[in-house]
Write a protein that binds this DNA or RNA. Structure first.
Lengths: 344, 344
DNA sequence: ACCGCTCTTTGAAATGTTTCACAGCGCGTA
DNA sequence: TACGCGCTGTGAAACATTTCAAAGAGCGGT
């Protein structure tokens, strides 16, 4: 059994009375070896508790069986759903998925990428801190299959998968106007985040198209896209004199919206009567909030799945061409904007 | 620059006009090589865009620079917080963390473990589907450093880090009794999950010690520990005639509690006046719920951190001894159980 | 008896790194 | 001048696997 160190192919070969090559064949091309020997080898492997050394395999084969996803913010369930989509696609392709978290720090992102390069992963999926960062170019130039998730970058040096954020902003604004609001707030920041800019832009476009005054769409900037920041924004909002206070808020993501929701209710406002709220992403917890949150849904798992397929194509298909996939967001109306004739 | 395939140490050596060994020394023991040559080698590495091949390193060195965490349920933020704690400890030890998700499926767990074994990871942290599963024994017998997270297993064949769930159950029950409740529900299941059993057990103990009737602690079983199941349980609860309905619920985790909270409010109950709710874990979203949730806090990141330290000790310290660490949970009282004299 | 064929199995080379015993060199000391 | 020593650099071996050309075995047909 397991005496000294872990047994190698050599040990298995010796124990089964065959050569190295045969053991390897049993593992990689079982059809070429006779039933009889295959059986003997398999028994030997089981007896010795043999486990293939992946490093050696990889070194020789030159290819790893892993994909990696570098996510932007581990505290946002949105990214875990994306990761789950990737994981499913990876599982189907019989690959492992290596999940890293940059925590929105560019330096940490770089460290992770370096490690992944060293591991010679088959492909990298990433939601980058900054899609124009030079270290991403490095990857592309090195020929590592790369897909940008939930962002797009200028030019088409790599594939990307994202949702049309401008459109998302438009449908959120449209929905609020349909509900009768004529003065709303957009809550989100910092501006360095592309999604924030585009969602705001979309909202402004639609606002103007529907003939409303630009001044009546107020931008309340935040430091980050977190629940805490949502609460802070809520304090500012509820602090406004009623006459000047918007009757609805469109938040750049659901975490902000949840924070805002909590703060507003705590301050005694009724949602949606006194303040309607729309989020973005439609994470699980949006539906589970005490006042279920209206949100602009991104097809989270689909995003991940599609990204994984692109990266696999780039990894295996010699005449792969970069593509920028754009998904269409969709409004999910719930109680936080729609007056509760029927509850739930 | 980057012409054909990725350059190896050999290429760097040639380009810098030194031997293989010297290049290796520059990377691993820079102090033994003269400033002059070191500089030349470093320039060559930069010019060629050299990236060390981790597989080869690992093969030769016999040791990887990775830890792995197999989490139980990717949809529960609790586990991501644990993972974050591990990640931080790993970062300090200059290791990478490989995160896998078994999704509560034993088969998938086994697949992940097998892969990790093949990768020769330095150590494995796992929140197992079933802590008594034989494949865990395999690992231990193989000598892979192993730490069970958030569970304990019989015997002391391996380290574990957990929270005293019985105590957690006790303090939750005690808190509710202090708030004047004399008829409560415990919501949670299935029974196969150890934590569920122990939290209920703790609650029952305290209930009895405080002189209350066993019949007045009702067990409402669920199929899983999810928001959806929480809502379902809520339907059953709110459907009861008022006289028979408990005035408070202790949920086996926060996801259940959030689902219950939502359903109750939707059904027109006031929380906590008509129904008080206590959760377990104290995930971020507990505090962020519209009625902030009272919860039994587990030191989530600490749990991960401690687990990582144990696994590192087992990996590096020759006279390591297995330990079962038990953390003390702590009640965080919020509006879902305490009448809101002061809001927030 | 030999040929040609298929089906298995073999052994050696190759992958990119680290390690280690050793060699070369310059220098101060005997 | 010879010796010993410390500092650098070298080259080959080792790690566990895969791959591939080639050898061997068995067999039917001539």
């Amino acid at each position: 059994m397991l005496n000294g160190r872990t047994p190698s192919v050599k040990d298995v070969a010796a124990s089964a009375g065959v050569s190295l090559g045969t053991v390897s064949n049993v593992m990689n091309r079982p059809e070429v070896v006779s039933a009889h020997t295959r059986e003997r080898v398999e028994r030997a492997m089981a007896d010795l508790g043999f486990v293939r050394n992946e490093s050696a395999r990889q070194l020789r084969a030159g290819t790893s069986r892993t994909l990696a996803y570098v996510m932007l913010d581990g505290t946002n369930p949105f990214f875990h759903d994306v990761a789950q989509g990737i994981e499913l696609a990876a599982e189907e392709a019989d690959l492992s998925l290596f999940i890293c978290n940059s925590n929105s720090r560019s330096a940490r992102e770089a460290v992770h990428l370096d490690r992944l390069l060293q591991q010679r992963v088959q492909g990298i999926l990433i939601t980058p801190v900054n899609p124009e960062a030079p270290h991403l170019d490095d990857l592309a130039r090195r020929g590592v299959p790369l897909v940008i998730v939930d962002r797009v970058r200028d030019g088409n040096g790599s594939c990307s998968v994202a949702v049309d954020d401008v459109l998302g902003g438009r449908i959120a604004a449209e929905h609020l106007v349909e509900q009768g609001h004529t003065r709303i707030a957009f809550i989100g920041g910092p501006d360095s985040i592309g999604q924030v800019r585009e969602r705001l832009e979309g909202a402004r476009e639609m606002w103007a198209e529907l003939g409303l005054a630009a001044d009546d769409l107020i931008h309340l900037p935040t430091e980050a896209l977190t629940v805490t920041e949502g609460r802070t924004a809520g304090e500012r909002l509820t602090g406004l004199p009623v006459r000047r206070r918007p009757t609805a808020a469109f938040c750049a993501n659901d975490l902000l919206a949840l924070g805002l929701l909590q703060q507003s209710i705590g301050a005694g406002l009724r949602v949606p009567e006194d303040l309607a709220i729309v989020g973005f992403d439609d994470i699980e917890f949006a539906a589970a909030a005490a006042v279920p949150l209206t949100s602009v849904r991104q097809p989270r798992q689909e995003l991940g799945r599609a990204a994984a397929q692109l990266v696999l194509d780039e990894a295996t298909n010699p005449d792969h061409r970069h593509r920028q996939l754009s998904f269409t967001p969709e409004l999910v109306a719930r109680a936080s904007t729609v007056n509760r004739s029927r509850v739930l």
